[in-house]
Amino acid sequence: MASPPQTQQDDTGPAEVRRRRAEAAKQYQPSRVRLLLVAQAPPDADDRYFYFLDVAQHDWLFRAVARAILPHVELTRTNKASVLAQLRDRGIFLIDLKPDPVDGSDLSPYVPALLDRVAELEPERIILIKADVFRVAYPALAAAGLPVSQVRIPFPSSGRQREFAVAFGRALAGE
């Protein structure tokens, strides 16, 4: 899969980074979303994102999700496109509650837009990743009658990978 096109100028402002993220995610959006993962927000580093192919370090969420869903696939720095394609082919898609990196502000203002995006994607199941995402988004998604997991899942950052794997496994099993 080709890398997203590069712009001629070195414009790394928030709008350009948001565009690059959207373009990268679109390449791996399934035609039918079976499982929608909702994370908190993209990383604050402009070169890291779940759907970016050349993430040199701290690609925790991608690696943890891929390990849980594709346990027999070896993850390397060179096969991320292939793994993302396999996730897409299984109907798995990830979006963020907040479109830009977290800045300490309240996440609840982003829930109405999340409900709109979820309605547009029509997922069969929804898993929320990170305690604060669950806290602000679960009540609204459940009240809307959407198929959201009740399992609280921590972010798989350094030291929490095992905790993530157990909780994510429970959510995948339908708890």
Score class of each variant (00 low, 15 high):
109 P>W: 06
91 G>Q: 09
62 F>G: 07
77 R>A: 14
81 A>C: 04
110 Y>T: 00
71 P>W: 08
98 K>C: 05
67 R>T: 11
109 P>R: 05
86 Q>T: 12
59 D>T: 02
70 L>H: 01
61 L>Q: 00
111 V>L: 00
92 I>E: 04
84 L>E: 03
88 R>W: 07
73 V>S: 12
65 V>N: 09
74 E>W: 04
91 G>V: 07
64 A>D: 02
112 P>M: 04
98 K>R: 12
79 N>G: 06
95 I>Q: 08
74 E>D: 13
99 P>V: 05
60 W>E: 05
58 H>D: 14
113 A>F: 05
65 V>H: 08
108 S>W: 12
80 K>G: 09
98 K>V: 01
72 H>A: 14
64 A>Y: 02
66 A>L: 03
96 D>K: 01
79 N>W: 06
59 D>Q: 00
59 D>G: 01
106 D>T: 10
61 L>E: 00
94 L>Y: 08
61 L>I: 00
81 A>I: 07
99 P>N: 08
99 P>M: 05
82 S>L: 15
112 P>R: 01
68 A>Q: 04
60 W>H: 13
107 L>W: 03
59 D>K: 03
93 F>H: 15
92 I>C: 10
100 D>H: 13
79 N>S: 05
61 L>H: 01
104 G>V: 03
92 I>V: 15
65 V>I: 13
103 D>I: 07
84 L>M: 10
96 D>C: 07
76 T>A: 11
79 N>Q: 08
82 S>A: 15
100 D>V: 14
107 L>M: 02
95 I>N: 04
88 R>I: 10
88 R>S: 10
102 V>F: 11
76 T>Q: 09
106 D>N: 13
95 I>Y: 04
108 S>L: 13
81 A>V: 09
82 S>R: 14
59 D>P: 02
109 P>I: 07
98 K>Y: 01
87 L>F: 08
62 F>A: 03
81 A>H: 08
66 A>Q: 04
70 L>C: 08
88 R>F: 05
101 P>Y: 02
106 D>Y: 11
89 D>G: 00
90 R>V: 02
84 L>I: 13
78 T>G: 11
95 I>V: 14
104 G>C: 03
71 P>G: 06
87 L>D: 03
113 A>H: 06
81 A>L: 05
97 L>I: 02
78 T>R: 15
81 A>W: 03
99 P>R: 06
96 D>W: 00
80 K>A: 12
80 K>M: 05
68 A>G: 07
75 L>G: 04
95 I>S: 08
87 L>I: 09
94 L>K: 11
91 G>C: 05
90 R>Q: 15
